[in-house]
Design a protein around this nucleic acid. Structure first.
Lengths: 259, 259
DNA sequence: ACTCATAACTCGTTAGGACGAGTGACGTCA
DNA sequence: TGACGTCACTCGTCCTAACGAGTTATGAGT
């Protein structure tokens, strides 16, 4: 029967006590926490209060709760998959996507036609409602079981001008890059990284645990004249994967980047 | 009185109905949702059920709830701050950190001495319990009000060998890089990006809304012989900031990256 | 017209109760 | 011995009830 007094609401005091016990190591990772009934008597509170405290800890990603079994301290293990966001070429000029070979396609790719949104239009330097080729892939890393959602978007307007893209806009990235390079294009890439909570369909598709954000990457392939050719998006659970970049120190002065 | 029947629990059906209404535009961003009492009569359920549904939508980051006012549709605005993770040099060799000038120090830096953990030791290619200089900064972007937590870690063992670091390990990054370069070091950088839910102290320090993950960056500065010199960590709320990288296509074959 | 107390709304917290559903151990029966 | 059903334990869902606390509009009083 621990005494609690500190700050604010009862359930927050209970949550703080449990959190402290976890972070101090009293409850080891993967170990079973006391049941709701035990916590009720231990802190002298009602079940809603205990459940409220547990809900707070779940939202922090500190514990996992399994129906019929109990609450477990989540092991804050490192991500098991490091995704190198780099593009390499073998001496004979062939593109090699780091990690590109480990990804399998868990389903048949889904190809479709769509239009730019405000967000995708901005990245492709287009207005809204511009026509696009779209291709969605569900990728799977058999080694770790990690899943990722991949999307390729190519504007009609670009495919009209670039034969390599009109031929088959639904190729995989490495094939597209190679084709473009063979046609004489000098490619550059820029990538933005964001994180957010998953929508329900992303949560089920990626098989994410509670309180797990997703990393959302947007990679734009540019031509030598800085015209955007391809937009690729990758969504992946942040519990299993991390991104790795090599940072280059170029000789040009930095430009302003706020927008 | 909308009818609901679909899947699983009652509160999930209610949550799905509200979510659908939001995503379909029936409830515009920043608009006020019906109150709990109204939702109770509208769906014919009790208050706990309504609150459970609302809690689910909060955890998804879809709505914000303000005590005494109501629930509001969160505007899924783009991040207002794009952080260029690039290192540039002016023609005379001076380092320029993109965005480096916009950051102010919201507090006096906190310097201390600590030891490697399993995670930081791995990045610095050291064992555990190796002595480190530490410096924590709370950064502030006055333009957007965005806050970020920055940490610099330098091993004693490195400072012993590299005079530029022993002199003052608590300088800001740009000054450290310049000093090292003047001393003849050829620097390279690698960076890993992860996302996770914030701990309570991070949540308050960074002033984060509900269901907002943080982006966690770890940048390692390497010497020309690939020895790690400096580890920098940056933690920032994913609601306000995104990261931008330029991806280089180098000529070397890719190495395996799984670990 | 202005000030300020009150009322009426909002969500937040806590309690108590009841039943459903997943899990695993135990014991019975074949 | 083995299969299987029961039971006790876990968390999940749903309800009623009451009060606290923040916000805003209303209206009375000055």
């Amino acid at each position: 029967m621990s005494e609690i007094q500190r700050p604010g609401a009862l359930y927050q005091q209970v949550a703080a006590a449990i959190r402290e016990a976890i972070l101090s190591g009293e409850f080891a990772p993967d170990s079973l926490l006391p049941s709701e009934a035990q916590l009720m008597t231990r802190y002298g509170v009602s079940r809603p209060t205990v459940r409220n405290a547990i809900a707070a800890l779940r939202a922090e990603g500190l514990i996992d709760v399994r129906h019929g079994k109990g609450s477990f301290v989540r092991s804050d293990g490192q991500p098991s998959l490091t995704i190198e966001r780099r593009i390499s070429r073998t001496p004979d000029g062939k593109f090699v996507m780091p990690n590109g070979d480990v990804w399998q396609e868990a389903e048949e790719p889904h190809t479709y036609r769509t239009h730019t949104t405000k967000a995708t239009g901005r990245l492709l330097q287009l207005g809204e409602e511009e026509a696009l080729f779209g291709c969605d892939r569900l990728l799977l890393d058999p080694g770790t079981g990690t899943r990722a959602m991949h999307r390729t978007l190519i504007p009609f307007a670009v495919a009209d001008v670039v034969p390599a893209l009109a031929e088959d806009p639904y190729k995989r990235s490495g094939a597209l890059y190679r084709q473009l390079t063979e046609d004489g294009h000098k490619l550059t890439w820029s990538e933005t990284v964001r994180a957010r909570m998953p929508l329900p369909d992303e949560r089920t598709t990626l098989q994410l645990p509670d309180a797990t954000p997703i990393l959302h990457l947007a990679r734009v392939t540019h031509d030598s004249d800085d015209r955007p050719l391809i937009l690729e998006e990758l969504r992946i659970g942040a519990d299993r994967a991390e991104l790795a970049y090599r940072i280059s120190a170029d000789k040009q002065p930095a430009r302003g980047t706020r927008h």
